[in-house]
Design a protein around this nucleic acid. Structure first.
Lengths: 341, 341
DNA sequence: TTGTAAGCGTTATCAT
DNA sequence: ATGATAACGCTTACAA
């Protein structure tokens, strides 16, 4: 079933059919209705490929991201999808398992398929590869700070600010020994977190005792770290973990060792989780605006797509701030409980 | 940059370029290499749309699913994506928020875009709509049992078996008063769970006291239910919840009310979660093979795609069995701990 | 082994 | 308001 057959059965030319499809107002009402009827009757759907052959717009974008095991990434993907669908676009969700090879493979597939734009989450690809794609005229927006010094478009959470806020929260609660546990998989974010941590520490009213460790982001990573610290007698008074799962692991190990939270150990995480309110005590954590990040990024991408000049313009950056979800694991006594700016 | 320019620069005809692309063995090695060189030099990528205009294969499938808030769905999507990528296919991930309108919208978009096949997870669409799509010649495979009595292709978890196994586990531990808490959002699965529950109960050596309730699948749903039961003095000795979050909610409410688990209340869930091992005590739950389900379904879909006769053949069903992840929340004393068939 | 040319199903530019 | 018709970039008989 193609445009010609429809034209035949409606007793008009293919041009008229095309006009009914694309510029209905240019067709007389009677003809239009007749054509609509024939289309419906024959369940006619215009061929997407023929259409794009002349139109040069695929109404498809790619969202290339490292993994889908976190609610944060889900939220970002959600935000992207919402904006895209609003613009009648579809999203190729490409999850790379955090490997550069998969990312490269997907990127090439996306170029082949002429997507209108690409969103790259925490890209691990070298600048030249990105430039090559940009050189093909495909707008790209990055989520994360990497390459933000170059001519890129980036949207990201300000982790320096977030880490500083969280550290500050602990300082305000009076802790003078605060350690930081980083995530061994994270690269740029880890640097930012450390920077924010040290920034806040340097501004503390009294001198702080700080230290920085690294562990796997999993619950096991947290448990292992805690076991080691306990055995070495080096468990601090307060601890900031990079992931909620690390925090859960530490809490479990602490419970087994008879360490009370928050009386003996104050703990908080740079990442929130749906079960943060479930554990005992509920975990204080950084609450990142994932959905908003996804929406903002998608909007920036569509700005580039719809506005080619805008696309080739200089670097652009949007920075989003995270909030603190203050719960009980740090010993907070005030009755703020949640969502502290 | 198109095939003609490449042909020109390589000093051959467009047909030769096309052949290099699609049947390299039909081209002499020298020409072939020369063409490859020119292609690389000019960063040539064949136009996807022109290609599909003649080829009638989009190498794209759709995975339409209700939501992405559960790790199970993530696992299924993962499995689908893995198989698809293996076949050089891309996946449109379409999440419908569980609404029939979104599902219909996405389905129509997918038809427009000529996807080679569609996977529908827990479809809420009427049979006629599905038939319409199938009538267009697009292979469909369903995840879930709905419409399994009709001429459909379905892959699903056997929830009757899973519920029976879990109930049986509790019976074996000696509980004689077991209640079931269903998920108000679930439709078909809830019926199956109830059926399996009642089946196992009817086979118990001694007469069981059973009852069935319904609550929201969230933690709040579980808490609310528990509060009511406690106030009414009707909290049973053993409880099976439909979702892990419900179980967490019940556990939290129980803790607040001084009810010990598993000493006073044995609890288990039809759904597992990454934090089941974290809570105290670790939650016994049904562990569903999500990734495998996704892979099996995708394979069945590709069988249909590659084998049109197969596609129009009678209904086909693949049933996957879930396992029990036996932990501590039911009072299990044996040292099995995990993954009991 | 390579080239010629006819489609594939649209859109858009001219005419009428 | 409508109709011819030339693109769009590719694949594939068929011919050479």
């Amino acid at each position: 079933m193609n445009i010609r057959k429809i034209a035949e059965r409606a007793g008009v030319s293919v041009a008229t059919i095309s006009r009914v499809l694309n510029h209905p107002d240019l067709v007389s009402p009677e003809t239009r209705e007749r054509v609509y009827a024939v289309m419906k009757e024959n369940q006619y759907t215009p061929n997407w490929f023929a259409r794009n052959l002349t139109q040069k717009q695929t109404r498809t974008i790619a969202f290339i991201y490292p993994s889908n095991d976190s609610t944060f990434l889900q939220a970002v993907a959600d935000g992207v999808e919402i904006v895209a669908l609003n613009k009648k676009n579809l999203v190729f969700l490409c999850h790379t398992n955090g490997t550069a090879e998969m990312e490269r493979e997907y990127l090439e597939l996306m170029v082949q398929r002429n997507v209108d734009g690409i969103i790259l989450f925490s890209s691990r690809l070298p600048q030249e590869k990105i430039e090559q794609v940009a050189g093909l005229g495909i707008p790209c927006v990055h989520i994360g700070r990497e390459g933000a010094d170059t001519e890129r478009k980036n949207c990201y959470i300000n982790y320096i600010d977030a880490a500083a806020k969280l550290t500050d929260h602990m300082i305000q609660l009076g802790y003078q020994q605060i350690y930081l546990l980083l995530d061994s998989m994270l690269v740029n974010e880890a640097d930012e977190i450390k920077e924010g941590f040290e920034l806040a520490a340097s501004k503390a009213p009294t001198k702080l005792e700080t230290d920085v460790y690294v562990a796997d982001r999993s619950m096991q990573g947290g448990m292992l770290f805690a076991h080691r610290m306990i055995q070495a007698g080096k468990m601090p008074r307060a601890l900031i973990t990079s992931s909620a799962r690390q925090a859960f692991g530490v809490m479990k190990a602490a419970r087994l060792a008879g360490i009370r939270i928050p009386e003996d150990l104050a703990i908080a995480s740079m990442t929130d989780s749906s079960v943060s309110t479930l554990v005992d005590p509920p975990l204080t954590a950084v609450d990142r605006p994932g959905k908003r990040l996804g929406m903002v990024t998608a909007r920036m991408l569509f700005d580039c797509i719809e506005n080619r000049e805008f696309a080739t313009q200089n670097a652009q950056h949007v920075e989003l701030l995270a909030k603190l979800a203050i719960r009980k694991s740090c010993g907070n006594r005030k009755f703020i409980y949640e969502l502290f700016e």
